[in-house]
């Protein structure tokens, strides 16, 4: 086998990495500059002087930005737990309990997942207003669960379908009920599927914008993407605060993605391939 030239390959790889990271790097650099440094001419590429003042200021002057991150965390976690519980049960019913018309139901679930979120807004806003669910964690958790359940069901159903049926048959011979089999055999065997699905649902919910914008109208209840986007500046967008808050809001996602990149990529490609 002939060896192909590698320089071109490495140049392209480095270029892709730099382009992918550029906005994030520029954001982090901005957050480490003084206000004068951000608006200086000639432009400052590296922070000079380097400062952590913007981070300290967020804790002292704009704690609502931290509240947004906390709200996002509560909603995303709640949505992930509910979606995995409901979606796991539904996926098991559809792939393993010999349901009639399981195929039709799967296609129905796929079809409704394609509704544009904005088309749900007039009705959801009215309903949530009347039920007192606007500006509640419960409300947004239910809404996000609805949005991401179709994905969860598809992912978990296809994971369950890969388990060997003999184990469940043996358990049934021993007189175990269906619920016990699901709880004490299927779930422990399927945790990689639950982890991959849960991580992606968590990221989806953390990132969701239109429903979070409309269903959380009080400043104190906003999630991070919405709260930071609507953060008011006195006369101009306060980029030193915005860049710092954005860094704080994306760190959880960056960490999750970095640690679990294999599971996330595996889950994403499996989900899209179905």
């Amino acid at each position: 086998m002939t060896k192909r030239p590698r320089f071109g390959l490495y140049a392209l790889v480095i270029l892709s990495v730099v382009v992918s990271f550029l906005p994030i790097i520029w954001l982090v650099l901005t957050s480490l500059k003084t206000t004068e440094g951000i608006y200086a001419w000639p432009p400052q590429y590296l922070p000079d002087p380097f400062t952590l003042k913007n981070y300290i200021n967020i804790f002292t002057n704009s704690p609502e930005l931290l509240l947004y991150v906390l709200n996002s965390f509560i909603v995303a976690l709640g949505c992930t737990v509910v979606a995995l519980s409901f979606g796991g049960m539904a996926g098991y019913a559809l792939s393993r309990l010999g349901m009639r018309r399981a195929g039709v139901l799967m296609v129905f679930i796929l079809a409704v997942s394609m509704f544009p979120p904005v088309s749900l807004l007039p009705s959801l806003f009215q309903t949530f207003l009347n039920l007192g669910l606007l500006n509640t964690y419960t409300g947004l958790i239910i809404a996000h669960t609805g949005l991401f359940l179709p994905f969860t069901v598809w992912m978990l159903a296809s994971y369950f379908a890969t388990l060997p049926p003999e184990i469940e048959e043996a358990a049934r011979m021993d007189g175990m009920g269906f619920f016990r089999i699901f709880w004490s055999i299927v779930i422990p065997l399927s945790w990689p599927g639950f982890v991959a699905t849960g991580l992606i649902v968590f990221i989806f919910s953390w990132n969701e914008f239109p429903l979070a914008l409309v269903l959380m109208t009080q400043n104190a209840m906003r999630t991070a993407p919405v709260g930071i986007s609507l953060y008011p500046g006195e006369y101009a967008f306060p980029w030193e605060t915005i860049s710092t808050a954005t860094v704080i809001a994306i760190v959880p996602v960056l960490i999750i993605t970095a640690i679990f990149q294999k599971q996330i990529v595996g889950g994403l490609t499996a989900g899209a391939g179905k």
Partner: peptide, 21 residues
């Protein structure tokens, strides 16, 4: 990881980063 990051981050915040650039 570099390829995955742009996808994993919230579009709203990605957009703010670009608006700043």
């Amino acid at each position: 990881l570099a390829v995955l990051f742009p996808w994993a981050l919230p579009t709203a915040l990605n957009t703010l980063m670009w608006r700043w650039m």
